[in-house]
């Protein structure tokens, strides 16, 4: 019997090792959301990101000149916008006062730098140099001055990983700013697409797409992109709308984390509501 096993091992050891390794991988595949795995992941990427951040800092110095020039230009443009918005704000304040609305526009912004990117075709993730110590929590939106980048997926003490919009596992509820119609936005590996959009929706090329208030992740409308193409017009009852994102995920280096988790608030409210019944 032992001789038989030895013979089998000698003849098929490569395949036996392969099968064992694949089985272990499949087992781990089903354990992705377990606490233990999350803890190991948090320690591993936290440690690695510490090294990466040093490397990135050195590397980024060469890009600072270009970035400074771009920032100066953006500043000038922002100044023009700001002066116009100040006018609007004064009118807005008066109107809000009349309606006795509470101004809720102050959201905490946590600045962070991207220390590494894993921008595969389908699973875009970025590692940021802000984590638990900076009050970053899972579910917080990541933004730039141009619009939404992604959502925090995992956190360590000083680092966090965010899924970008170019990640097939991230789906966000969005709406057209013009028509106020909602749809689910996801990455199909090639394009950001709004899926299952009824043909009755009056979307047009160039429409501005923002996150929807009915999203369980994003607290208020964040710019996402512009409608690029409305597909599948001839057949079926739904359209698939391609969206050109405002943010260039390849070139983004600095981001802000919006320090609020909407789902947590909603959960608390809904929990209290259930308790009252």
């Amino acid at each position: 019997m032992i001789r038989f096993f030895v013979s089998v091992w000698e003849n098929f050891k490569e395949y036996i090792v392969l099968v064992v390794l694949l089985i272990v991988s499949l087992i781990l595949l089903s354990q992705n959301s377990s606490q233990g795995i999350q803890k190991v992941r948090s320690i591993a990427f936290g440690t690695f990101a510490t090294v990466t951040s040093v490397f990135t800092d050195v590397f980024n110095i060469s890009n600072l000149k270009n970035e400074n020039e771009n920032l100066r230009r953006t500043n000038a443009e922002m100044m023009l916008h700001l002066s116009r918005l100040r006018e609007y704000a004064i009118v807005n304040e008066d109107l809000k006062g009349l309606l006795a609305l509470k101004d809720s526009s102050t959201f905490p912004l946590i600045s962070a730098t991207i220390v590494s990117k894993s921008l595969t075709k389908s699973q875009g993730t970025i590692t940021l140099n802000a984590g638990n110590n900076q009050s970053v929590k899972v579910g917080m939106p990541v933004i730039t001055d141009k619009g939404m980048v992604g959502i925090i997926y995992s956190t360590a003490d000083n680092y966090s990983i965010a899924r970008t919009l170019t990640n097939v596992d991230l789906k966000v509820t969005v709406k057209s700013e013009r028509t106020r119609e909602n749809a689910v936005l996801k990455w199909n590996g090639e394009w950001l697409v709004m899926i299952n959009v009824p043909k009755t929706f009056d979307l047009k090329k160039g429409d501005r797409i923002v996150t929807s208030e009915i999203s369980s992740i994003i607290p208020f409308p964040l710019p996402v992109g512009l409608v690029y193409e409305i597909g599948n017009v001839e057949k079926g009852i739904f359209n698939e709308v391609k969206v050109q994102p405002f943010v260039d995920f390849q070139k983004t280096e600095n981001v802000f984390i919006l320090g609020i988790v909407k789902s947590k608030e909603i959960d608390d409210i809904e929990f209290n509501l259930l308790n009252r019944q």
């Binding site: 392969l18 390794l21 694949l22 272990v24 991988s25 499949l26 087992i27 781990l28 595949l29 089903s30 354990q31 992705n32 795995i37 190991v40 992941r41 591993a44 990427f45 690695f48 590494s116 894993s118 595969t120 699973q123 993730t125 590692t127 997926y153 995992s154 990983i161 899924r163 596992d169």
Partner: peptide, 23 residues
């Protein structure tokens, strides 16, 4: 297998996917 495990853990990919691919 080892490279895949480390890659998945560090980059935040679906744990097991790179393990199978790289094995």
């Amino acid at each position: 297998f080892t490279y895949g495990f480390l890659f998945d853990i560090i980059t935040g990919s679906l744990l097991g996917s790179a393990m199978i691919a790289k094995t």
